[in-house]
Design a binder for these strands. Sequence first.
DNA 1: TTAAATCGGATAAAAAATATCCGAATAAAG
DNA 2: CTTTATTCGGATATTTTTTATCCGATTTAA
Lengths: 169, 169
Amino acid sequence: MQISKGVEWAVHAAALLNGLPAGRGLKAEALARYHGVPAPYMAKQMQALSKAGITRSSRGAHGGYRLARPADQISLWDITAAVDGKGPAFRCTEIRQNGPCGLKPKDCKKACQIAAAFAAAERAFRESLAVISLADIAGQVVDDASPEHLTAIMQWLGKEAEPLSDSQS
Amino acid sequence: MQISKGVEWAVHAAALLNGLPAGRGLKAEALARYHGVPAPYMAKQMQALSKAGITRSSRGAHGGYRLARPADQISLWDITAAVDGKGPAFRCTEIRQNGPCGLKPKDCKKACQIAAAFAAAERAFRESLAVISLADIAGQVVDDASPEHLTAIMQWLGKEAEPLSDSQS
DNA sequence: TTAAATCGGATAAAAAATATCCGAATAAAG
DNA sequence: CTTTATTCGGATATTTTTTATCCGATTTAA
């Protein structure tokens, strides 16, 4: 059971976008450079966020990404689902219908008890992530960081952030 | 985020072993045949269960597997951890230390807030599985099954179950 | 109108999960 | 006691998923 590395990158990237002044954005390459990760793969994660409606993108010269809605309305589960998919981690293959004592399909209207137990556990996992917003994370990071570090970030953002046009998607 | 298919098989296999009379066991090939799955891969899962101390194995003629302790002392998390590993699904790669605004290692004594949030979610997942025992699952299955189906299982077990010697591991 | 720049989907490489095989070990029979 | 059949256990291929990369479609600005 592995969560893809892209989830980690996407959350960090979204948290950084939250620090942007209104109306400005960062291109995928800048996000990758900031976090010291391969640019094309970071770009792929950003595409997933845009497709899920978490970020908005602007194409063409001076394009880039920005958050599509306030950070307190974006949960860690939203980002995880966008990058890794919403599908269940435990996939019941109905092996209770196999073999010499296999059940008939008509006797399988109730979900398999084993699958139900794992579904409940995954629900607990999702709920735990769903109650934490990007705003929560950003707040904690700011609280923990030194003033010098915050200044350095602001300076970097001031240098790299581009004013974006208002076009969609 | 995927849970390996082997986990499903291992739980089903362990539940079946719970139905055995005391002192008897099933070989890996029989467990695979019962569930209609490839024998060698089922065997691999059983090896993982034995390594984790969940099952005991007997080698040689008339060998096989049995549960190593009562079913109410085996949780779904025990089995999941044995097959899929105990390691965290979210692997923090400390990208906060990368790039132009990267933190120094000495400023990273506190765990990354993002990693901490995912760790909490995984804890919720584990706890949810840890409170469900193999005995719970087996009880529910028996409650739901028709008398004929239970009889069929008993007959099959009577035919396939081997008396095991008392040797270790 | 032209040209530069960026996102988006399609395409390779690496890693992990899945499936399989063969040797070591045990027990029963000769 | 020796031999032989049988089983588990670890090492080995194959397939799938994840990770990483590239090139074309689209948009903006000059």
